[in-house]
Simulated scan of single mutants.
Amino acid sequence: MHTPALAVTRTPLVAVYGTLKRGLRNHHWLEGADYIGSDTLTGATLYDLGPCPGAKLEPSNGIEVEVYRVDARLLAGLDRLEDYRVRRPSTGLYDRTIHRTSYGAAWLYLYNPDVTGCPAIREGGWWPGHADPRSLG
């Protein structure tokens, strides 16, 4: 469930669904973060953008996320990676919004551009052709 943006805490949680997950190419951006656990979010739908997935705020059967506790420095790095623009979030590649997870409220990056022509990921809730998060323990 999506909730309005809340003040950033000193140790915010971040829910990741794509190349930031364990075993994938951008996971190194989470070096130093504490892995909290996996969860399924039903308030967002994943789209296959080719080199990465993008989430849109649309109900789904669930997307598989990994939840991490990050500090302000790591969150700022993730913002750079995702082209999140604090002052004008709708102009960047991704927006960052708060969603409820079973571990508490967590930031989730939502893809801003139009996804017309991109296939929705309906089966399994993870990016197809890449590591099934359940196989990574």
Results as ranks from 00 to 15, higher is better:
residue 128 P to Y: 11
residue 16 V to E: 07
residue 82 E to N: 12
residue 116 T to E: 13
residue 11 T to G: 00
residue 44 A to E: 06
residue 36 I to Y: 01
residue 8 V to G: 00
residue 66 E to R: 10
residue 62 G to L: 06
residue 62 G to N: 11
residue 134 R to Y: 07
residue 94 Y to C: 04
residue 84 Y to C: 02
residue 44 A to P: 01
residue 75 L to P: 09
residue 93 L to V: 03
residue 37 G to Q: 03
residue 17 Y to S: 05
residue 13 L to I: 02
residue 91 T to V: 08
residue 35 Y to M: 04
residue 133 P to W: 11
residue 50 G to N: 08
residue 72 A to G: 09
residue 84 Y to A: 04
residue 24 L to Q: 15
residue 22 R to K: 15
residue 44 A to H: 11
residue 129 G to Y: 10
residue 64 E to T: 14
residue 47 Y to P: 06
residue 121 I to Q: 11
residue 99 H to L: 03
residue 72 A to Q: 14
residue 122 R to T: 15
residue 81 L to R: 14
residue 23 G to L: 06
residue 77 G to R: 15
residue 23 G to H: 13
residue 127 W to R: 13
residue 51 P to S: 11
residue 120 A to I: 05
residue 94 Y to G: 04
residue 123 E to Y: 10
residue 34 D to M: 03
residue 103 Y to N: 01
residue 70 V to K: 08
residue 27 H to E: 11
residue 76 A to R: 15
residue 85 R to S: 00
residue 69 R to Y: 01
residue 36 I to R: 07
residue 48 D to E: 08
residue 22 R to N: 11
residue 24 L to D: 10
residue 60 S to M: 04
residue 126 W to G: 04
residue 54 G to M: 06
residue 105 A to Y: 06
residue 116 T to M: 04
residue 39 D to C: 02
residue 107 W to Y: 15
residue 55 A to T: 07
residue 19 T to W: 06
residue 78 L to Y: 06
residue 133 P to Q: 12
residue 15 A to F: 06
residue 70 V to S: 05
residue 48 D to Q: 09
residue 28 H to G: 09
residue 80 R to K: 14
residue 52 C to L: 12
residue 119 P to V: 07
residue 71 D to P: 06
residue 33 A to S: 14
residue 30 L to S: 06
residue 31 E to I: 00
residue 129 G to L: 08
residue 90 S to C: 00
residue 124 G to H: 11
residue 46 L to H: 07
residue 30 L to W: 05
residue 133 P to M: 08
residue 53 P to I: 03
residue 103 Y to V: 00
residue 68 Y to N: 08
residue 129 G to K: 13
residue 49 L to K: 14
residue 42 T to M: 02
residue 25 R to G: 03
residue 10 R to V: 00
residue 78 L to V: 02
residue 80 R to A: 01
residue 116 T to N: 12
residue 48 D to H: 13
residue 58 E to Q: 15
residue 21 K to D: 08
residue 83 D to H: 13
residue 15 A to H: 10
residue 61 N to V: 01
residue 111 Y to H: 10
residue 31 E to A: 13
residue 24 L to K: 14
residue 59 P to F: 02
residue 23 G to C: 08
residue 23 G to T: 12
residue 64 E to H: 15
residue 41 L to D: 05
residue 87 R to E: 10
residue 46 L to N: 05
residue 78 L to M: 10
residue 92 G to I: 02
residue 64 E to F: 10
